[in-house]
Write a protein that binds this DNA or RNA. Structure first.
Length: 586
RNA sequence: GGGGCUGUGGUGUAGCUGGCCUAACACAUCUGCCUGUCACGCAGAGGAUCGCGGGUUCGAAUCCCGUCGGCCCCGCCA
């Protein structure tokens, strides 16, 4: 027997036709005589009818059918009686009258109803993921994921990019995320690492002359999970030779537009806004700003420099900044809301949060009584305040003040629903610092990675005292407050690479030991090159309007990095450990 | 490593300021009836010792401590 049609394609054009359908029993409506069953497959649902006057035997067997039984039915397509059409179904104009039924497999009562309406705890869904994935919405997410991957492959292939696979078993290159390690059986005491990204391999491919490379590839990072972070995730990894930063940015803009055109109903702009890191931090308090929140952080240090309010004026004197965020409209925020914000802020590293609300009766605020008339006037003018606006103040080190107000900007913007969640915003963040000081390590560390090229205008600063001023040729692609991609123009000069290692306090021996193959490759005629890696799961998540990448990954891990279905990771046999020369200490 | 939320029949929830809880409701399940339903309907039935362990108390789903699982966030994620 062969299935002639799927459950999503029959309509009145096939009326009268004999068909064979296969699928799962979605719902059963047993009227005693007539039995209706919605047969479901990944293409849709079709109503099948068992009529004792048409096929007595089939109708008798149909009495046994329960939810999620796997069925094969042979029957005739017929138009539903007048007024009995189901407008909610694409196949709702017809039904299949069954002449012959085969129960291909039975099913115990499922742990939850296979339906998008059913509200089931994620814990249960993940344990029975194979059932969860039967739900139409989950099937659509994976279909969307496939289409997105296809669009990416087609676009890049048309642009003459070549897909090349790189090793999954590779060497550990600390610095960066924690590695997943794989013990070597043949080399006692030695380990492979799973790649955090194919970064070095793609650079080597450039040295090999594959001037346009891409790969849709799994990457592994043994770090704590988030809604948008899994220990194994997929990147669209891209690298090209003889390109400038703008070449990469434009190519990626084309890629993203193509993806949107093929899989989404949303429209996005032709080219994406570019902001530099400093502005992103100053205006949005984040290097991955969600610009859909229509508020910008303002610097009001100048206004409070001479204020009688000592907390602010002294902060300004000490070289700190006073940042202000106008929250509008804020009529729904009461004193207790501001007070709870204040405690929230302390968890983020700020010493305090000032607030003031402008009501029709004047200022409502625990601190505004300390402001001079000049201060108030300055604020009104700079922030263009009107009744029912509130202002949040943080006086702190620049980075802290920005980040804290950035966090509040986002959480209040969402809470007060001041923007349409369905809109899409894409932008580039450029000119990141190349290095940042790590107090923990007592040295400078790479903001991106040690192979990122310094901004060519800043090369002279590389010898200066304040290395945090050196900008990089790195770039991040940001969508709705998520970093969906990041990359850079790389260093292709061995001496410059050596210099960066020195700056990072990575000794020559250490560099040779860890990245010798790269340094060697850079000597053998490395072309100028650069690239990007897109977070494929995040991209699909945003295209699907989901809030967790788990929803667009077939078999994801929990926040404690386990799989509830397979119960991985698991203990292994003593014999396996022995072969791998591994002993567990408890 | 830290903070927050959460765990009650198969599923989702209510109860959680301790005693009327002999744990309620909806869906699902089972039985019977039903020839036009599509969240089918009607009548009935079964099913949870409240994640687990300990403590307080005359009495614990309810309070306390510990522990395990899930989710969100900070740190971490070059």
């Amino acid at each position: 027997m062969k299935r002639t049609h799927t459950c999503g394609e029959l309509n009145k054009k096939q009326v009268g036709k004999k068909v064979i359908l296969m699928g799962w029993c979605d719902v059963r409506r047993d009227h005693g005589g007539l039995i209706f069953i919605d047969l479901r497959d990944r293409w849709g649902k079709t109503q099948i009818v068992f009529d004792p006057s048409v096929a007595q035997a089939a109708q008798g067997l149909a009495k046994e059918i329960r939810s999620e039984f796997v069925l094969e039915v042979e029957g005739k397509v017929r138009k539903r009686p007048q007024g009995m059409e189901n407008k909610k179904l694409p196949t709702g104009e017809i039904e299949v009258v069954v002449q012959c039924l085969k129960i291909l497999n039975r099913c115990p009562t499922p742990p939850f109803e296979i339906s998008d309406q059913a509200d089931v705890a994620e814990e249960v869904r993940l344990k029975y993921r194979f059932l969860d994935l039967r739900r139409p919405s989950m099937q659509n997410y994976l279909i969307l994921r496939h289409k997105t991957a296809q669009a990416v492959r087609n676009y890049l292939s048309k642009q003459n990019f070549l897909e090349v696979e790189t090793p999954v078993l590779t060497r550990s290159t600390p610095e960066g995320a924690r590695d997943y390690l794989v013990p070597s059986r043949v080399q006692p005491g030695k380990f492979f690492a799973l790649p955090q990204s194919p970064q070095l391999f793609k650079q080597l491919l450039m040295v090999s002359g594959f001037d346009k490379y891409f790969q849709i590839v799994k990457c592994f990072r043994d770090e704590d999970l988030r809604a948008d972070r899994q220990p194994e995730f997929t990147q669209v990894d891209i690298e090209a030779s003889f390109v400038s930063r703008d070449d990469i940015l434009e190519m990626v803009e084309g890629l993203i537009q193509t993806v949107f055109k093929e899989v989404s109903v949303k429209n996005i702009k032709k080219s994406f806004d570019r902001l530099n890191y400093k502005d992103a931090m100053n205006w949005y308090g984040s290097d991955k700003p969600d610009r859909r929140v229509p508020w910008k952080i303002e610097d009001v240090s100048e206004i409070f420099k001479n204020s009688p309010f000592k907390i602010f004026s002294q902060a300004a004197e000490q070289g700190k900044v006073i940042k202000a965020l106008k929250v509008t409209p804020a009529q729904d925020l009461a004193r207790k809301d501001f007070e709870s914000l204040e405690s929230e802020v302390k968890g983020l590293g700020a010493k305090g949060l000032g607030w003031a609300k402008l009501t029709s009766e004047g200022w409502q605020s625990p601190i505004a009584k300390n402001f001079s008339d000049q201060d108030k006037e300055g604020l009104l003018k700079k922030l263009k305040l009107k009744a029912n606006d509130a202002v949040l103040f943080v006086a702190d080190e620049w980075a802290v003040a920005c980040q804290v107000l950035g966090a509040l900007r986002l959480s209040l913007g969402k809470k007060l629903k001041v923007f349409d969640e369905k809109t899409t915003d894409l932008c580039w963040v450029l000119d990141f610092p190349l290095f940042e000081w790590s107090a923990a390590d007592n040295r400078y560390v790479s903001v991106h990675h040690p192979f990122t090229s310094p901004h060519l205008e800043d090369l002279s600063l590389m010898n200066g005292s304040d290395l945090s001023k050196v900008r990089s040729l790195g770039y991040d692609l940001v969508m709705n407050g998520y970093e969906i991609g990041g990359g850079s123009i790389r260093i292709h000069d061995r001496d410059l690479q050596q210099k960066v290692f020195e700056t990072l306090k990575i000794s020559a021996e250490e560099a040779t030991r860890r990245f010798g193959f790269l340094l060697s490759a850079l000597e053998y005629g490395a072309p100028p090159h650069g690239g990007i890696a897109l977070g494929f799961d995040r991209l699909v998540m945003l295209l699907a309007n989901c809030s967790s990448i788990r929803d667009v990954i077939a078999f994801p891990k929990t926040t404690s990095a386990t799989c509830l279905m397979t119960e991985a990771p698991s203990e292994v046999d003593e014999a396996q450990l022995k072969e791998l020369h591994i002993q567990i200490k408890s």
